[in-house]
């Protein structure tokens, strides 16, 4: 037998099946639930045994009851929808304007010199400071609230997009140049896909600020919304209602963030990175 006779192993190309991914996903969900569940149990037990006075620190069971009652009466849905709509509208406006200015100042040196200093100065203003002015300008109804949320969303999106465009690898831009892409084509075929991963992060932090500012917006006078539940709970001395609203904020905020993250996943499969998907 000659030594050169080496049979090559057949190369098998297969993508890993989805089952183990789903399994590990479920496992990670349970792991994530562990800490809040233990905390809730501990809290409940402390109140039941009289270790903590439950009047100002209502136990999870009371909060759940409050949530259930709010849900039964249909109020909870109304409040959630009102708040979510405000965040969504403000998020859309802030994202569109932020993306536009971010892309413009990232792409063009002239635009950057023209707009960036003013925008950075505006960013230095605590956004809540706009509240009185927005109320004077836009009234106490939806417009002023959405404007405030939009301002909150604008800055992280603007900074994220502008920074991401600036840091696109020159080497990859040169590939576009060697194939003679026009300015518009260069943006569409190179710059936009290249900034997509940072864009998703910018959107997520923008959305986070949106949820933050909706509370401020609803504090300045609202007859419905989760922020209204907070104010109402404080004025009428209902800590269980405040905590119920806080929990709903946590849930809805997390859900909306996961929504963006999961919408982005199929578009970012190409990424060659350290961590797994969101």
């Amino acid at each position: 037998m000659s030594a050169t006779e080496i049979s090559l192993p057949e190369i098998v190309h297969e993508k890993a099946s989805a089952a183990p991914i789903v399994k590990s996903r479920l496992k990670s969900v349970w792991l994530g639930m562990l800490v809040p569940l233990v905390l809730a149990l501990f809290w409940e037990a402390s109140v039941q045994t009289g270790l903590i006075v439950g009047r100002l620190m209502p136990p999870p069971s009371r909060i759940m009851m409050t949530l259930w009652n709010l849900w039964q009466s249909g109020d909870l849905t109304t409040h959630i929808i009102a708040t979510t709509l405000r965040v969504f509208s403000g998020f859309v406006v802030g994202t569109i304007v932020g993306t536009l200015f971010g892309a413009l100042t990232g792409y063009s040196l002239l635009m950057r010199r023209l707009f960036d200093p003013s925008l950075q100065a505006l960013r230095a203003i605590p956004s809540i400071a706009w509240v009185p002015l927005f109320i004077l300008w836009l009234g106490i109804f939806e417009e002023s609230k959405i404007a405030l949320i939009a301002v909150g969303v604008f800055f992280p999106v603007y900074l994220g997009v502008s920074g991401a465009v600036l840091s696109v690898d020159r080497k990859i831009v040169e590939v576009g140049r060697i194939f003679r892409l026009s300015g518009f084509e260069l943006i569409r075929r190179i710059l936009l896909p290249a900034v997509l991963p940072s864009y998703v992060i910018a959107l997520r932090s923008g959305l986070g600020l949106g949820w933050m500012f909706v509370v401020a917006a609803e504090f300045m006078g609202a007859s419905e919304g989760l922020g209204y539940l907070l104010v109402d709970g404080q004025q009428l001395g209902k800590p269980d209602q405040i905590l119920a609203a806080i929990i709903i904020f946590a849930i809805v905020g997390k859900l909306s963030d996961s929504l963006i993250a999961s919408i982005a996943v199929p578009f970012l499969r190409w990424e060659d990175r350290f961590g797994p998907g969101a």
């Binding site: 080497k171 590939v175 060697i178 190179i190």
Partner: peptide
């Protein structure tokens, strides 16, 4: 400026990762 008559292969592949 770059022209269709001329092709260029860089030192690195410079593939578009997406």
């Amino acid at each position: 400026k770059p022209h269709p008559y001329i092709g260029l292969v860089f030192q690195e592949p410079r593939l578009l990762p997406w």
